[in-house]
């Protein structure tokens, strides 16, 4: 019975048009965003997307994989926008040379996001037990943590807790009830029962886990 209910829920979800598909079919509209903002967003996505892709494969999670596809399509759009903006900004050969450098960096960031798309294709393969074993030995690993009611971190923002600077753990996604928050910013709050996906070292993980379990009052 429980299994049937679970299956029903997944089918219900699959029927909804995925966000990335919507983005892909939406007409490309030219939005005049400054080159600097476009490049910053592209760099940020390129750093987040690889971690998300490995998380999706490790945790066998289709929803995280869907976010990777969405970001990949978003990256294509940003790359298109940045080309237009750069071309409009060129007034001389010197300008064009300098702007070509910006476009090359943007292209590299897009290439990284395409690689993330390839990584999630591993979900179709039988990657057990090799993939978890390899990733378990990496310098920095991906961990899954739960924020319990007992933790003094509940209802506090990520920024006020200084999670990354105190523990070195970078939060890449939060699962709350039935939705996800990807790349939460310092203004985002933590709530009891949140599932946190974070990247960092084993020491940082232990420290943050104790804090989330309420075993330690202070994050330090």
């Amino acid at each position: 019975m429980g299994k049937e209910k679970h299956r029903h829920r997944i089918i219900g979800k699959l029927q909804r048009t995925p966000l990335w598909k919507k983005e892909e079919f939406s007409e490309i509209e030219y939005e005049p965003t400054p080159v600097k903002e476009l490049l910053t967003e592209m760099k940020d996505i390129s750093e987040l997307i690889i971690d998300l892709a490995y998380s999706a494969v490790l945790l066998h999670n289709q929803e995280i994989a869907e976010e990777v596809r969405y970001l990949e399509v978003r990256m294509d759009k940003l790359n298109y926008d940045i080309r237009i903006m750069a071309m409009m900004a060129a007034r001389s050969k010197e300008d064009a040379e300098q702007l070509a450098g910006i476009l090359q960096i943007a292209q590299a960031a897009e290439k990284i996001s395409n690689t993330a798309g390839d990584i999630i294709l591993l979900m179709k393969e039988n990657t057990e037990p090799v993939l978890p074993r390899i990733l378990a030995k990496a310098d920095e690993r991906i961990y899954r943590l739960k924020v319990t009611e007992k933790s003094s971190g509940c209802n506090q923002t990520i920024g006020s807790l200084n999670i990354e600077s105190e523990t070195g753990m970078r939060i890449i996604a939060i699962r709350r009830e039935d939705y996800w928050i990807y790349n939460p910013q310092s203004k985002s709050s933590l709530i009891a029962n949140d599932i946190v996906i974070a990247r960092g070292t084993d020491e940082g993980y232990k420290q943050l886990d104790e804090f989330f379990l309420g075993k330690k009052e202070d994050i330090k």
Binding site: K43, Q104, A109
Partner: peptide, 28 residues
């Protein structure tokens, strides 16, 4: 991709100031 990024640095063209500005505004 990392090599394509440094290609920009190794070329004899001065970097566009926007590159440094956007790197400084990044999350990390």
């Amino acid at each position: 991709a990392a090599m394509e990024i440094v290609d920009v640095q190794l070329r004899d063209v001065e970097l566009h100031p926007i590159i440094r500005m956007s790197l400084k505004e990044s999350d990390e």
